[in-house]
């Protein structure tokens, strides 16, 4: 399954800011954009002679496997981290 929640944490001196992003909502909001762009996607696939189903399957795989990804950057008392659940 695709990830549904992401956590972003920012620490700056005494400020500790943590936000949980409901990705499910983001995916729902992006759905109309995807539908609008789908003709372009199909044209691009036809031009590249690539099966759109294959492209969709690979994209879905990539999206689904982002679960567990983590990025942390810390420098001089400031840190930023994201975690995809």
């Amino acid at each position: 399954m695709i990830p549904f929640v992401a956590r972003v944490t920012v620490r700056y001196k005494r400020l500790d800011f943590r936000i949980w992003i409901p990705l499910a909502l983001v995916w729902l909001l992006l759905l109309p954009v995807v539908l609008i762009l789908s003709p372009l996607f199909l044209i691009a696939c036809a031009a590249g002679r690539v099966s759109p189903l294959r492209v969709l399957s690979v994209c879905w795989d990539i999206l689904a496997n982002t679960k567990g990804s983590q990025i942390e950057v810390a420098s001089a008392g400031t840190s930023f981290s994201t975690y995809v659940f």
């Binding site: 795989d61 990539i62 689904a64 496997n65 567990g68 942390e72 950057v73 810390a74």
Partner: peptide
């Protein structure tokens, strides 16, 4: 420090 963790499944995909 930069610390990045990538799931192996993501690499496979």
């Amino acid at each position: 420090v930069v610390n990045i963790r990538v799931p192996m499944q993501l690499l496979r995909a």
